[in-house]
C-alpha cells in the first residue's frame, strides 16, 4: 500500500512538472514569435565544423542586416533538411541542385533566390588513386567506386548521369556495388586512405581540399571533370507569418555581400552571390526523373 501511495505521488509530481514546463514553453514561444526568429540551414555536404562556422557567420550577418533573430540549425543528412524545410522549421536553406528541386516540389511557393557565380557552371570531378593511372571516364570500369550522399547533385546525381552517358551502369560495371560515402570530404578521404579506388565529388570541395593541403595529390588525383550544370543555391521558404518585406530584405542582404563580408564569402569559396530563379534547375529535375530519383 505504501508503495502504491508513493507511486501515485510520483505520478502527480510528474504531472505537475509537465504542467509547469508547459506554461513556460508557451511563454517562451510567444516571445519568440514577436521577435521573429529566422532559422537557416544547409545540406551537410562537407565537414561539420567548417559548415557550422560558415553558417554561423551567415546567421550573424543576416541578423545585423534584417533586424531579425537568425539561428543556424545543423542537420545530419540531406533529406532531413528537405523535410525540415517542408515543415516550415527552416526559412532559408543552402541547397544543392537536387535537394533544392525536391524542396520546391514539396513547397511549391518556395523560391531559389541566390547562387555563387560558379554554381551557374558547376562541375563534378572523378578522382582515382594515382597508381591506377586512369585516363578517361571509361577506364573506371572494374574499379571500386563511391558516390557522396545519395541526395547530392554533384556527388551522385550528375556523376551517375555522366556515367550513364558513357554507357557505364553503376550497379554492374564497378568492382562490387557503388558505395554512398555521405559527404564530399569523406569521398576523397576514403579514396586517399585506400578504402575505395575511385570516387566522384563536388569540384569546389576538391579544389579547397587541394588548396588547404587536406588531400595528398601524389596519392589521389582527378582524372575526369564533367560538363557544366547548375548546382548550389539559396532557397527561401514562403515566410508565412513574417512581415511582407522580409523576403526582399534577405535577398538583398545575400546579393549585396562584398569584400566587407570577405570571411563569409571565403568560407563559401566565392566573391559574391548573384541572382537565380527556379527555372534554372529544370535540367536537374529532368535528369533526376530519368534516373528515377524523382517520380
Amino acid at each position: 500500500m505504501k508503495k502504491l501511495v508513493s507511486f501515485l505521488a510520483f505520478v502527480l509530481l510528474l504531472g505537475l512538472l509537465s504542467g509547469c514546463a508547459e506554461d513556460k514553453e508557451e511563454a517562451v514561444e510567444q516571445e519568440e514569435t514577436t521577435k521573429q526568429t529566422l532559422k537557416i540551414g544547409a545540406i551537410p555536404d562537407q565537414d561539420v565544423s567548417v559548415l557550422s562556422r560558415s553558417m554561423g557567420e551567415v546567421a550573424d550577418y543576416l541578423s545585423a542586416e534584417t533586424g531579425l533573430e537568425v539561428e543556424y540549425v545543423p542537420s545530419v543528412d540531406y533529406a532531413a533538411l528537405v523535410t525540415a524545410f517542408e515543415r516550415g522549421e527552416i526559412q532559408l536553406a543552402w541547397f544543392g541542385g537536387l535537394t533544392g528541386v525536391q524542396a520546391r516540389n514539396r513547397v511549391p511557393d518556395a523560391e531559389a533566390i541566390a547562387q555563387r557565380p560558379r554554381d551557374e557552371e558547376f562541375h563534378s570531378v572523378f578522382i582515382a588513386q594515382k597508381e591506377l593511372g586512369l585516363k578517361s571516364l571509361s577506364d573506371i570500369k572494374g574499379k571500386s567506386f563511391t558516390f557522396g550522399s545519395e541526395s547530392s547533385t554533384s556527388g551522385h546525381l550528375m556523376p551517375r548521369y555522366y556515367l550513364m552517358e558513357e554507357g557505364i551502369n553503376a550497379e554492374q560495371d564497378f568492382n562490387g556495388n557503388p558505395s554512398y560515402s555521405g559527404s564530399h570530404d569523406k569521398t576523397y578521404k576514403l579514396v586517399e586512405s585506400g578504402a575505395f579506388q575511385t570516387g566522384a565529388l563536388n569540384e569546389a570541395v576538391w579544389e579547397a581540399a587541394v588548396a588547404e593541403g587536406k588531400v595528398d595529390t601524389s596519392k589521389v588525383d582527378v582524372f575526369y571533370t564533367t560538363p557544366a550544370y547548375y548546382d548550389y543555391h539559396w532557397t527561401i521558404n514562403t515566410l508565412e507569418g513574417y512581415d511582407s518585406g522580409v523576403k526582399q530584405k534577405i535577398t538583398d542582404a545575400l546579393l549585396s555581400m562584398d569584400s566587407e563580408q570577405q570571411t563569409i564569402l571565403d568560407l563559401f569559396q566565392t566573391d559574391k552571390f548573384i541572382e537565380t530563379k527556379n527555372e534554372n534547375y529544370e535540367a536537374i529535375e529532368k535528369v533526376a526523373k530519368q534516373i528515377g530519383i524523382i517520380k
Binding site: 571500386s144 568492382n175 562490387g176 586512405s193 585506400g194 578504402a195 575505395f196 579506388q197
Partner: peptide
C-alpha cells in the same frame, strides 16, 4: 570476387 576493398586491409 575479392571480398575486401583493395585498401580494406590497411583501413
Amino acid at each position: 570476387e575479392p571480398l575486401l576493398h583493395p585498401g580494406g586491409g590497411a583501413t
